[in-house]
Lab assay of single mutants.
Amino acid sequence: AIERGSKVKILRKESYWYGDVGTVASIDKSGIIYPVIVRFNKVNYNGFSGSAGGLNTNNFAEHELEVV
């Protein structure tokens, strides 16, 4: 089962992080479509409006993740 702290591989082909491994930061139990927040070591794009980097978290559905 996917739980907080799990290392997961991203299976969503259109994702910037496809094939990468991230760490589960949290799981939303409220029934939303993409409840699993995954944190990565790298950012997906340069930040804007003065922020240092881009996003390094993204929401995924459990079926888009594979525990490694």
Rank of each mutant, 00 (worst) to 15 (best):
G54H: 07
R39P: 00
N59A: 14
G22Y: 06
E14I: 07
K9F: 05
E3H: 13
G53K: 05
N44Q: 14
F60M: 01
G31N: 15
G54A: 09
S51L: 10
A25N: 05
G19S: 04
K29P: 09
G50T: 09
G31D: 14
S51I: 11
N59Q: 07
P35M: 15
N56P: 06
Y45F: 12
G22W: 05
Y45D: 15
Y18V: 03
V67R: 05
D28T: 04
F40C: 03
S51E: 14
G22D: 01
A61L: 05
G53F: 07
T57K: 06
T23R: 04
G5E: 02
N41A: 11
S51D: 14
D28G: 05
H63D: 10
V38Y: 00
K9V: 07
P35H: 11
Y45L: 15
S49H: 08
E64P: 01
Y34S: 06
N41W: 12
A1C: 14
H63R: 06
A61M: 06
V8L: 00
K42V: 07
K42T: 09
G31W: 09
S30F: 06
R12A: 04
V24E: 01
H63Q: 06
I32T: 13
I27K: 02
D28K: 05
F48H: 11
Y16I: 07
D28E: 09
Y34Q: 06
V68L: 10
T57A: 07
A1Q: 12
S6H: 06
S15F: 03
D20K: 13
Y45G: 15
L55S: 14
A52N: 12
G22P: 01
N41T: 12
K7W: 14
K9N: 03
V68K: 03
L65R: 01
N46S: 08
N46W: 10
I2M: 07
G31F: 12
V24D: 00
K29C: 13
G5T: 02
S6E: 03
G22A: 03
V36W: 04
R4L: 14
N46Y: 07
V67H: 04
L11C: 08
I33K: 13
Y45I: 15
A61D: 04
G50I: 07
E64K: 02
E62N: 07
G50R: 02
W17C: 04
N58S: 15
I37V: 14
V38A: 00
I33T: 10
D20I: 13
G47E: 14
E62D: 06
V8E: 00
E66A: 07
E64A: 02
S49Q: 11
I37W: 14
N56E: 08
I2K: 01
Y34R: 10
K9Q: 04
Y45K: 15
E66V: 08
H63G: 04
V8I: 01
V21H: 04
H63F: 12
F48T: 14
K13C: 11
L55W: 09
E62P: 10
V67P: 07
F60K: 00
F60A: 01
G50N: 09
N46V: 07
G31H: 11
L11V: 03
Y16E: 07
H63A: 07
G5R: 02
K29D: 10
W17D: 00
A25Y: 12
G50A: 10
S26D: 13
G50M: 07
S6K: 07
L11W: 05
S26A: 13
S6L: 09
K13Y: 08
F60Q: 00
I37D: 01
F48A: 14
L65H: 01
N41M: 12
K7I: 11
S26G: 12
L11H: 04
I37E: 09
G53Q: 12
G22N: 01
R12G: 00
F40A: 00
G50C: 15
D20T: 10
F48M: 13
K42P: 06
S30D: 05
N56M: 09
A61I: 02
A52Q: 12
L65G: 00
A1E: 09
I27P: 01
Y34V: 03
N59C: 15
S30P: 04
L55H: 09
K42C: 15
I10N: 01
V68I: 11
R12C: 07
K13A: 08
D20L: 14
G19M: 10
L11D: 00
G5K: 02
I2N: 02
W17I: 01
K13T: 09
G47A: 07
R12K: 05
F48C: 15
S15V: 03
E66M: 10
N41K: 14
V8S: 01
K9S: 03
Y45E: 15
K42H: 07
S15Q: 01
A61T: 03
W17S: 00
S26W: 14
L65C: 04
E66K: 08
V38P: 00
I32L: 11
F48K: 06
P35Q: 13
Y16N: 04
G54K: 05
V67K: 06
S30H: 06
G53A: 12
K29F: 11
E3T: 14
F60E: 00
N58R: 07
S15M: 02
N46F: 09
F40R: 00
V68W: 08
S26Y: 12
E66R: 07
V8K: 01
G19H: 05
V43F: 14
V8T: 02
I33A: 14
G53W: 05
V68Q: 07
G5F: 05
Y34C: 11
F60I: 02
Y18L: 02
V43N: 10
A52R: 04
S26M: 13
Y34G: 05
Y34E: 05
A1Y: 10
E14M: 08
G47Q: 08
E62Q: 09
P35N: 14
G22F: 06
V38N: 00
K7D: 03
E14W: 11
K42F: 07
I10T: 02
S15P: 01
E3R: 14
R12L: 05
W17M: 03
S15C: 11
Y16T: 04
I27Y: 08
G31M: 10
T23L: 06
I33P: 14
T57V: 09
T23I: 13
K9G: 02
Y16R: 04
W17R: 03
V21S: 02
V36C: 04
E66L: 10
G47S: 10
G47V: 05
I32F: 08
L55F: 12
H63W: 13
G22R: 04
S15K: 00
V21F: 07
A25R: 05
V43P: 15
R4H: 07
Y45P: 15
V24K: 00
E66Y: 07
E14P: 05
R12T: 04
G50D: 13
I32C: 14
G31Q: 13
G19W: 05
V67T: 05
G50F: 07
E14N: 12
K9M: 08
G31C: 15
I33E: 13
V38E: 00
V24L: 02
I10P: 01
W17L: 02
T57H: 11
V36I: 14
G22Q: 02
N59T: 09
K13L: 12
E62I: 14
Y34I: 03
D28Q: 06
N58V: 10
S51P: 12
N46R: 03
T23D: 03
A61P: 02
I33F: 11
G5L: 03
K42M: 05
R39N: 06
E3G: 11
N59Y: 10
G19A: 04
V21E: 04
G47Y: 06
